[in-house]
């Protein structure tokens, strides 16, 4: 298992060549040895080539990472704000109304809002889902002045609406990060 560091990095980046099978090793022909030498040559050249190809990659990637962090926090706090900061107006409006519509409907249906310290695993999962709605989570008392009522089917639906809104907003946060880092257009 003690392989050269460069070899491990190359395997992690891309599967350039297959590792010889047991049968190939047993045959011991010279072709397999020359393949192994060629592989080592490619592996040792790979990091240097990468450095030459992208001489300014670190500052650019650091800038993108900072932008992605700010956009992600904004997207979590206010649904759609991350996309708005990145200039995606249409997506921003759509996420705001989709997440906001779900969570406000859930509140008006008197769905349950899970507290941070519920004490059981399902309650913790519910809190994580609800907290995905950002500032809407803290508006729950404003909308649900009468408190949740899960004794009726509507209240149970409301609980699902709020949780779904949080999960959708978390997906929107991930989308924001991908756009900010340049992985998506």
């Amino acid at each position: 298992m003690n392989e050269a560091p460069g070899k491990e990095a190359a395997f992690g980046d891309a599967p350039v060549n297959q590792v010889p099978t047991a049968g190939e090793q047993a045959s011991g022909n010279q072709a397999a040895e020359s393949d192994a030498l060629a592989e080592q040559t490619v592996v040792s050249d790979a990091p240097a080539a990468r450095t030459i190809a992208h001489p300014h990659s670190f500052p650019a990637s650091a800038g993108r990472a900072v932008l992605a962090l700010f956009a992600a926090i904004a997207a979590w706090l206010v649904p759609g704000l991350g996309h708005l900061l990145l200039g995606r107006w249409g997506r921003a409006l759509l996420f705001f109304f989709a997440v906001g519509g779900l969570v406000v409907s859930g509140y008006l249906l008197r769905g349950n809002v899970f507290p941070a310290h519920s004490g059981d695993p399902f309650g913790t999962l519910g809190f994580l889902a609800d907290a995905g709605t950002g500032v809407f989570y803290y508006f729950s008392r404003f909308f649900e002045s009468a408190g949740p009522d899960v004794s009726r089917a509507a209240g149970d639906y409301g609980t699902r609406f709020i949780a779904a809104a949080g999960v959708v907003n978390v997906l929107a946060v991930l989308d924001t990060i991908e756009i900010a880092t340049g992985r998506r257009r």
Binding site: F95, A98, L102, F161, A164, V168
Partner: peptide, 12 residues
């Protein structure tokens, strides 16, 4: 629910 989630997923 279907309308709002469909719109969000389509956008994503």
């Amino acid at each position: 629910f279907a309308l709002l989630v469909s719109l969000a997923l389509a956008c994503l």
